[in-house]
Amino acid sequence: MVVALHERGLFSWAEWAERLSTEVKRPEAATDGSDYYERWLAALERLLAEKGLAGHEEVDAVAAAWERAAHATPHGQPIVLENDPGRSSGL
């Protein structure tokens, strides 16, 4: 996703590396690097929010919809956003 967004010209690779570096340097980051992908995600969310491409509240709301859809989907079936029982909230 990061590579695709960069290729759309939405940010420079230096901007991305700077955000990622900030996230992995945080004192609460795991010392063994086991949370590397969480740090990566945090860096991407921050960059997208700064660029006005996806705000935190918007991400929270859609993530919650995905969680509800996952709970509402019978085991073994693909999870799709349409399965979210709270869909009427306009998402």
């Binding site: 996703m1 995600l41 969310e45 997208l48 996806a54 859609v62 993530a63 995905w66």
Partner: peptide, 9 residues
Amino acid sequence: ARVRALETI
């Protein structure tokens, strides 16, 4: 869920 949310948006 957050990764899927970003992809969706």
